[in-house]
Design a protein around this nucleic acid. Structure first.
Lengths: 348, 348
DNA sequence: TCTTAGCACTCTCATATCGAGAGTGCTAAT
DNA sequence: ATTAGCACTCTCGATATGAGAGTGCTAAGA
């Protein structure tokens, strides 16, 4: 039973908003009296209680026990996020500070991604996660073969989009750096911008070195890989742990399992933001029935990068009681910022 | 007041060992009766109590309150680790399983390091941490310049040891891939195996492209960088959190701060294993007075890699109450294993 | 019909009390 | 030196109690 805008009077919306806001602040059930005192409502507490009753019947809030204040339910948060949350943009000062940090740091994803994680964690006071971006269409850009010791060779493969793969190859015999370079250059001429299936259709060479390298290249390109095979940047773990939801005795660390187990993360990503276009922010409240581990958590995710070329995921994971307005803005802003930075340095 | 082997009778040593063992198992204070019942000691509980008294006076164990069993003190653990811990090698079956996992996985650090972290976490039931290895003497091995878009160039710099640095350069004008390759090849001939200070002494070139690239190379090589600037692999966080020490209400998440803040980690590393030769395992119990954050934790660290060439750190962080024998063996074994693997694929 | 003052009612939480049980330290006997 | 026996101490869970918070309901007022 999905509620929409029109099911609630504007006063009910205000009260729900205030409950969410106050509960987010204090982590305590919210009493009718608190509402009129702290927010200066021009109605009596009895009226507020009546409205609360209605909201409770609608399943948007609940009382932990008979004589306690109210707490938003999962549904309540969903309604709030869908219909009531405002301020979809970060304060200008904050935006400037963050932007500054990015442009001040050394150029390159290896600095930007941890920074993004750190910014997200600080802004949201939750755990942040950022995956390295991943080429969407995997195509050959450049190859380099570096002789190391004996028959061992370091292969550096650059894909269109800028992803770099490295691998140590044990070849059948010792080759000179010269012949390695010659072979690499040949590949660079022949394979530029070609995808794996195009490369496979090319005529096979008789040269054993070429054969071995080609096999390795295709091998690397076929590692279509899950989204989070690459690096994953986490930050703000202590934020999550110091939250009352996790400190209380009824310990439940299952949300953290999600962060440690790549398959779970992959599942989460592929069933949410992966289906979205870049730029859209998705909010998952309480696991949405699908992720038992996220029972008491909310996740805010976005894809970033360049559509159809290079993209990654970023987002935050926090207790269900969180500042959705701010958190969503932060995720949105950082995703856009990273996308812009990547666009500036895209390798195509 | 440092105790050594000879300060304790052999029976006292046995009792201390048993207390450590039992407490590690149950996380509870150990009673004299438990000891004789569960471990079949041929003496009475009263005798055990007398010995316990002595050990208490020596500061090796303590009682949480008047009528409770005994718990090892920090000092007690230190004595145990220094003098009593046995079995410095993992069971053969375990060793084989682990080795198999490594040789079965795809070749390369990017697979080995996370695997090492995972193995350590599983074996120790604690948090594991593994840093990517780092060249000890930074020297030029190979350079590649790849034209991307406009005046932007992707620079891939391979250092002796196999470390790969990449950077996007914004050059003063557009250069053809051909001239980029020519310049790169020139560098490859001139700079092979040279360290930064040797490169600086070379005669400056008048060519603007060469100048820009050289500056970027030196810039990268001068990033002497802290040890853990590179990737850091963590695993087993949930192990630590599900431990009674962390679940209890007297929450203290400070140990986790250590894992999130690079400067702290750097400090820890540089003041411990960095001073050791590769292969030695260091055990820090209760922060050893220097790290307040580690008050109730123990850390077992080792350096791995190739002496004077390429090395990284790995280890575990767990509650002070841990299976030191097993944990130390695990750290030792994984470090050696990684060192061997790296030796096989070293780029020199 | 909507609002609100007033009040009884319920439930939590902090505090105090209590007894059982665990485990010790000590003493005296072996 | 060891140990049986016992008094003693302290924790911990159970039980009781009272204050206070917050509600729901009722009846009066707008």
């Amino acid at each position: 039973m999905k509620r929409n805008m029109t099911d609630l009077t504007s006063r009910q919306k205000i009260i729900l908003s205030l409950i969410v806001h106050e509960h987010t602040r204090t982590a305590q059930p919210v009493a009718s009296k608190t509402l009129i005192e702290d927010y200066g409502l021009q109605i009596s507490s009895a009226t507020v209680r009546n409205e609360m009753n209605t909201l409770t019947e609608l399943g948007l809030i609940r009382q932990p026990h008979t004589s306690a204040g109210r707490v938003p339910t999962e549904e309540g948060y969903r309604f709030f996020v869908s219909n009531l949350v405002q301020q979809t943009t970060l304060p200008t000062a904050t935006r400037n500070t963050i932007t500054h940090q990015f442009y001040q740091s050394r150029r390159g994803l290896d600095h930007w991604l941890p920074l993004a994680a750190s910014v997200l964690a600080n802004q949201s006071q939750a755990v942040s996660l950022v995956t390295a971006p991943h080429s969407e269409k995997i195509a050959f850009k450049h190859l380099e073969l570096i002789s190391t010791r004996g028959s061992q060779v370091l292969m550096v493969l650059v894909l269109v989009g800028g992803e770099i793969r490295q691998q140590i190859l044990a070849l059948d015999q010792v080759y000179s750096q010269e012949s390695l370079s010659r072979t690499a250059n040949q590949f660079n001429q022949d394979l530029e911008n070609k995808a794996a299936h195009q490369i496979e259709m090319l005529e096979a060479s008789a040269d054993p070195l070429t054969q071995q390298i080609l096999a390795a290249i295709l091998d690397q390109m076929h590692l279509t890989e899950d989204l989070v095979t690459g690096e994953l940047f986490l930050d703000g773990l202590s934020n999550l742990l110091s939250t009352p939801e996790f400190s209380s005795t009824n310990q439940d660390h299952s949300p953290l399992r999600l962060l440690e187990e790549r398959p779970l993360l992959n599942d989460l990503f592929s069933r949410t933001v992966l289906t979205e276009d870049i730029g859209g922010v998705q909010v998952l409240i309480g696991g949405e029935g699908a992720w038992q581990d996220l029972r008491n958590c909310s996740v805010i995710l976005s894809r970033y990068g360049i559509q159809d070329q290079l993209s990654g995921m970023l987002g935050i994971l926090g207790p269900m009681r969180m500042s959705y307005g701010h958190a969503i803005s932060a995720v949105h802003f950082v995703a856009d910022l990273l996308s812009d930075l990547i666009a500036d340095t895209l390798i195509d």
